[in-house]
């Protein structure tokens, strides 16, 4: 009887230790420095944490250094069937939510032509991240909004893109392009000049040469034009241009990340 009791206590302690383990464990970068910008290609890992809706974790192992990064914060999250290009900045932060070194800001681009074997880890005691609405979101039509007041200024708006895509990223790019198009319409702009950029200059990432196709610059510009059309801005006042070998920019939507700042569309709105 007593023996059984002690065995029970021991088991309980063991279970507790197993559950508590991540909280004790120090999760530190292996090679990278805090503040460093990293860029790598990997197969994503989903960690099935549950703190309510949209609270699962995404991890990416940087194979070159062996560091496991927490890439959950990206506006575009991975697809477990495809490789991802990860671009982000190493920060000190809560590593107990997901179990990886935090990248913040971070961008993930899904590389659809590179397959991965899907892999899911259990929560293993990690808490996950409670969902909160991203600050960059489009407000519903039924909410009142403020119109710009004259005198109207010429303004430029930059719209960020994922690597290789012309999709307007939900709750990131849409926030910026919506602002641009609404401004053009609200002030009845006399002209809008769209420039689409593509990062065609090759770079080497995780042993692969990455470059965006040249025609992507125009496709991105055309998407911006389609936004103007669908929201009711007259297309005869729109000029579009495409530019390859995109340079680094200070676009707000890239949050200070170097390579993502090249992939963009600029709308110049002229009163």
């Amino acid at each position: 009887m007593q023996g059984r009791f002690w065995r029970f206590v021991a088991a309980a302690v063991l279970v507790n230790v197993a559950v508590a383990a991540p909280a004790e464990q120090q999760i530190k970068p292996v090679v990278e420095q805090v503040g460093e910008e990293v860029r790598f290609i990997t197969c994503p890992i989903y960690r099935d944490t549950d703190a309510g809706r949209k609270s699962g974790c995404w991890l990416g192992d940087r194979r070159e250094t062996g560091t496991r990064f927490d890439i959950t914060g990206s506006p575009t999250k991975p697809d477990w069937n495809h490789a991802v290009l990860v671009e982000g900045r190493v920060v000190e932060g809560d590593t107990q939510q997901c179990g990886g070194v935090l990248l913040e800001p971070v961008r993930v681009s899904v590389l659809h032509d590179q397959n991965c074997t899907r892999h899911m880890l259990p929560a293993e005691g990690f808490t996950g991240r409670r969902f909160s609405l991203p600050t960059r979101n489009i407000r519903p039509l039924y909410e009142p909004r403020e119109l710009p007041k004259p005198p109207y200024q010429e303004k430029s708006f930059d719209i960020p893109f994922d690597f290789g895509r012309d999709y307007i990223v939900y709750q990131l790019s849409d926030y910026y392009i919506d602002k641009a198009v609404k401004y053009a319409i609200d002030i009845d702009a006399s002209r809008v000049e769209i420039t689409g950029y593509a990062a065609t200059t090759p770079t080497t990432v995780s042993g692969q040469t990455l470059r965006e196709p040249a025609e992507l610059a125009l496709r991105r510009a055309e998407v911006a034009r389609e936004w103007l059309r669908r929201m009711g801005y007259p297309l005869d006042r729109v000029k579009i241009r495409a530019q390859t070998k995109a340079k680094v920019s200070d676009m707000e939507g890239a949050d200070g990340l170097t390579e993502p700042s090249r992939r963009r569309v600029t709308l110049r709105v002229i009163p």
């Binding site: 989903y46 309510g52 949209k54 609270s55 699962g56 506006p75 999250k77 477990w80 939900y170 990131l172």
Partner: peptide, 25 residues
């Protein structure tokens, strides 16, 4: 409120950036 893993459903798991899979209701 009851969450479960939603996977491979075009329209939510792609192209929207919610991820594939995603935990939701």
């Amino acid at each position: 409120e009851r969450t479960f893993l939603i996977a491979d459903s075009r329209g939510v798991n792609s192209p929207m950036g919610f991820g594939n899979p995603m935990r939701d209701r």
